[in-house]
Simulated assay, not measured.
Amino acid sequence: MTGEPDGSGDPALGAAEDTPLSAADDTARGAHYVQSLERGLAVIKAFSAHSPQLTLSDVARSTGLTRAAARRFLLTLADLGYVRTDGKRFSLTAKVLELGYSYLSSMTLPEVAQPHLEQLSAQVRESSSVSVLDGSDVVYVARVAASRIMTVSINIGTRFPAYATSMGHVLLAGLPAAELDDYLRETTLDRFTSNTVTDPAVLRAELESVRSQGYSIVDQELEEGLRSVAVPVRDATGAVAAAVNISTHATRRTLDDIHAELLPRLRTAAQAIERDLAAAKPITRLG
């Protein structure tokens, strides 16, 4: 399909495919670990909104695979219907959405939260969302968009760095101490705007305040003009399992407006979501 040998007869290729992406992490992996699965997922994740179409060389460079190994993974994904190719460039198909929808359909949270977000958004005439923590990012699992206030579109599955968002602050503040220590040690705090907190000590202090007050207001840390307020959604044990927010533009709402008008309604919505979740099944927290 690409005019390159697939290396199926080369014993060295199989070894290359089974080499971990990060050798430093190998000591923490058990005998059960399937490195080929890791690499297949890495190939899928190489595609993005900025790179919807990739050549074989692009995928190999992005994943660290050899060209022969990248080709085998791409053609396998094509056989399974997750990838298409015109003979030179590869792109994902809509079937990849099944992977995400399998997770979402197993969660009660999105279906429970959605009507409450719709009611909240109608009341305040602003966008509202629910997210969960996945590694160092927040991932949107439910959303009602009242208006477009960011330069990028936000959809279900959109990810943002947790440290620069109000929902991220709420979710990080809810982590056990050891997990928060790991996060602050391992995460690079890049600057998005002049307001972005990039000092781990300052961020830790902010998260302590969020934990004690029960909410977070982030003022233009992720994008200029974007303000948001978030509160936790707790599970039956009282642990923070998700976060719900209202986002607005700085020209529409002052920080005082957010405290006085948005925060009380947001807290009411979060409580309603928690009540409905308690009557359903527990939230599945991402690893």
Rank of each mutant, 00 (worst) to 15 (best):
P5Y: 08
P11E: 11
P11S: 10
G14L: 11
E17W: 01
T19F: 12
P20T: 14
P20M: 14
L21C: 01
A24Q: 11
A24L: 11
T27G: 13
S36E: 13
L37G: 04
E38W: 09
G40E: 14
A42E: 06
I44S: 04
S51K: 14
V59F: 07
L65R: 03
R72V: 11
R72E: 05
T76R: 13
D79M: 03
G81I: 04
V83M: 01
G87E: 09
L92T: 13
A94P: 01
S102Y: 02
S105P: 00
T108I: 04
L109Q: 01
L109E: 07
P110V: 10
P110W: 03
P110H: 10
V112T: 14
L120K: 10
S121Q: 07
Q123V: 07
S128V: 04
S131F: 07
G135A: 07
D137H: 10
V138F: 06
V141N: 00
A142H: 07
A145N: 05
I154Q: 06
I154W: 05
G157P: 06
G157M: 07
F160H: 06
T165Q: 11
S166E: 06
M167I: 03
G168L: 00
G168Y: 05
L171D: 04
A173C: 02
Y183H: 09
Y183R: 02
T188G: 12
R191W: 02
V197Q: 06
A201C: 00
R204H: 14
E206S: 12
S209E: 14
D219K: 00
Q220Y: 03
G225F: 00
R227T: 11
V229N: 08
A230C: 00
D235C: 04
G238F: 03
A241P: 01
A243V: 01
V244E: 09
H259M: 15
E261N: 13
E261F: 14
R265C: 10
L277Y: 04
P282I: 06
P282A: 15
P282W: 13
P282S: 15
P282M: 07
I283N: 04
